[in-house]
Structures are given as structure tokens and as C-alpha cells.
Amino acid sequence: MKKLLSTLLLAGVVLWSASQAMAFKPAVVFDMGGKFDKSFNEGIWNGLEKFRKESGIKYREFEVQQEAQREQFLRKLAKRGSDPIIAVGFGQAAALSKVAKEFPNTRFSIIDMVVDLPNVQSIIFKEHEGSFLVGALAALKSGTGKVGFVGGMDIPLIHKFACGYVQGVKYINSNTTVFQKMTGTTPAAWSDPARGAELAKTMFDSGADIVYAAAGSTGLGVLQAAADNKKLSIGVDSNQNYIQPGSVLTSMLKRVDVAAYEVFKTAHDGSWKPGFKILGLAEDGVGWALDEHNAKLVTSAMKSKVEQVRKDILSGAIKVHDYMSDNKCPVQ
């Protein structure tokens, strides 16, 4: 009898896991920007496409167009048995915390925001660490002792980029001046390249020779202005060195594509875990880009110095302050 029971139990487990494997139905809800925003959403789309090509598993997707649709379609996907479900962007946090409570057996991942629930994985990045590195490189490269920062929307997240950058600059040379400007206070600030170019131009005119853009597609204007004025720029999120070869000093990499890919992959092989997933230098979630387009701009001395800084951050010798921990920045 005992044997029969355990056999049945085993068969049950095997069947259950088989059905789980067969029913692997991943899904993603993109935010307002849409999956082809040349920035954040598109980075995630790239990661998911990589998974689809490798595994041959299709995923469901939805692009939000109305506020109410976030909750509606997160719920609809969960109801249809999609699992795991990725919610893209901080805007979906309120909707996700509602829906995740209703479907405790569905696995959710949210990127760039924290939702503290037992079935939600919150993926956030240590943008301040990556920004520290590019700040250090900017200070090493600058000939005028003045560098700039152009942010997108004026939110704590972007101040986190700015604060890490300033810390990196001041670490190398505390006399360097950093000009800081935010593009705007609404989501429109993510997609205003003309304004980005204007802000960068003002900084170049005031003597800056390197400007770091953390501003979505607004940053493309910054890169363009740097190329036009024979100055340097620093890209963000994905490797943007190729966009204006020879005038992009480096790019602060934020690997949302890897993060999104990992969600599907770990959920597929069963190693997906809820809770916080904080991706920093140690996890290769952030970093700086060196390729053939900027190789001439970075001397080997600069490179070894930045690598040294990287190691010091990893070992804890350098502590990079996170703006969002207290909404303050120790240096300006």
C-alpha cells in the first residue's frame, strides 16, 4: 500500500512538472513608451527576442495605451495562465501590486521598481555604480576641468544617475565643475532630442567638454550636439558608442536586456526566485562600454585607472552613495 501510494505520488509529481513544462507561457506588458522606443522598453524587447530565438518559446505581449489598461491586461494575462509575467517600468507598480495579490501562484517580475510581495521579483539596478565609473573616466579625460550631465525626467531615479556621476568625477579630481540639468518633469522629457541638444550646447558654451546624457531618446540630441561641436558625450542604458563614432567617450551600460532574458530563462529552468534582485557592477548589471568606436579616445592609463576604480568599488574600498537611499547627494 505504502509503495503504491509513493508510486502514485511520484507519478503525480512527474505529471505535474511535465504539465508545468508544457504550459510555460511567458508574457510581458510594455509601458506607454511602447516596445520600439529605442531605449528602455526596446532593451527589454531585445532580451526577450533573444530568449525566443534560443528556446523557440513564444511569449505574449501587450503595449499599454491607457492608464487603466495596465491593471486590466496584467490581470488578463494572469487569468489566461501566463507565467512568468514581466511588468516593465516603475509606472506599473501600483497595478502590479493589486494583481499580484489576486494571483499568488503566478510569478511576476517588475523592472526598475520594487513591489514587495511573495510572488514578485523586483529587479533594480545600481545605476550609481556604473555612473561613478563613467564620471571617473570623464574627469580623467576632461581638458577644461568642466563636465556636464543632462537628465531626462526629474525623478529620484535620474538623480541617482547624476549623483553617482558627480561622485565619480570628484573622486578623480575634486576641483572639476559639474553642470547638471534635467530636461523636464513629465514623461515627455524622455523623448525631446532638440531640447537635449540645446542643454548640451549651453554646457559646451560654458566650457564643458564632456556631457553625460541619462535621458532616453532625449540623449540622442546630446550625442548629436557633442559631435557637431567637436566635444565628447557619454551614452546610457545600451551601448551607444556606435551612434556618433569618435565623439561618444563611453556608454553607461544598464543591462535591462539581460535582466529580462534572465527572468524568462530562470522561470523556464525553475530557478526563478521572488524578492529583490539588485544588479550592480558585481553582477555585470551595470558597467561601461569600450569597443572599436571609442578605443582611440580612451588611453591605456585611463583604462587601467577606471578598472582600478571598478575593483575598489567591488572590494568596498570606494563606497558609492545611492541617492535614492535618502534623496540626498553628498557632493554637487
Binding site: F90, G91, M113, D154, I155, P156, L157, T185, T186, M324, N327
Partner: peptide
């Protein structure tokens, strides 16, 4: 509305206006 929501009505530490 943009000014009110970004500077006055938004609770500190929140990202969305």
C-alpha cells in the same frame, strides 16, 4: 497640472508624477 503633480502633490521618493 505638470507643475502641481511634479513639485507639490507628488509624495517624496515617488517616481511617478
Amino acid at each position: 497640472m505638470v507643475n502641481l503633480l511634479s513639485h507639490v502633490l507628488r509624495p517624496p521618493k515617488e517616481m511617478s508624477p
